[in-house]
């Protein structure tokens, strides 16, 4: 979700096999460098594999270029990496959120499993509760929210959406990303 000079990204913590909950401590947001964050929904094994793949790729980028990767460049890296597996894809729908350190502008985008980028200036949703998230985000989001208001908005949007999805929930992680600060908050949420 985009705010004024800030972005937020949030995920639930459930890991399950269909209706059976296996773990309630499985974060789906990963940090690459100071400001760039990647959210991954989909097949759990690919969430782990893809997050590790990008950790490797971004670390190599940082060593080669002696700088942090920008969210835009990272988004294109995600896209080309996913499309590389066009005929045997990773079963994930990633979301990228970050702030470009050069111009200080927020950036978010989403992808399908083969890397088609979906740019947005408001919000991106993904996962089993995406239908519900579209509803809550459409209803709660407004332009130019400050960091605290953005936190409240994204948290309410996520919690209320996952409460209406049997396959999501069990607490949440929320990241508020500002130009030189990232705040991570843990939400308890409904434990049932």
């Amino acid at each position: 979700m985009v705010g004024k000079d800030c972005v937020a990204i949030a995920c639930d913590l459930r890991l399950g096999l269909q209706a059976l909950t296996v773990s309630n401590n499985f974060p789906k947001i990963f940090s690459y460098g100071s400001q760039v964050h990647l959210g991954l929904t989909g097949l759990a094994t690919d969430v782990s594999s893809v997050s590790e793949l990008f950790r490797y790729k971004v670390n190599m980028y940082r060593l080669r270029e002696e700088r942090d990767i920008s969210p835009q460049t990272f988004a294109n890296l995600v896209s080309s990496s996913l499309y590389e597996r066009r005929f045997g894809p990773w079963f994930v729908s990633p979301v990228v959120a970050g702030i470009n350190q050069t111009d200080g502008k927020p950036f978010i985008c989403g992808f399908d499993s083969i890397g088609c980028i979906d740019f947005a200036k408001d919000f991106i949703v993904s996962g089993t509760a995406s239908d519900q998230l579209f509803g809550t985000c459409e209803g709660l989001w407004e332009p130019n929210l400050g960091p605290e208001d953005l936190f409240e908005t994204i948290s309410q949007a996520l919690l209320n959406a996952v409460d209406r999805d049997a396959l999501s929930g069990w607490g949440a992680h929320v990241y508020i990303i500002e130009k030189d600060k990232v705040t991570k908050r843990l939400l308890k949420g409904r434990q049932d």
């Binding site: 096999l17 296996v22 773990s23 401590n25 097949l43 759990a44 094994t45 782990s48 594999s49």
Partner: peptide, 25 residues
């Protein structure tokens, strides 16, 4: 750690596999 054949892996306080999950969890 709970790991299934799809290579999903999660650190857990307790775990089971197969039908036993439905009874034990």
């Amino acid at each position: 750690y709970w790991i299934d054949y799809l290579a999903s892996c999660a650190p857990v306080p307790y775990a089971a596999h197969g039908y036993a999950q439905y009874y034990c969890l």
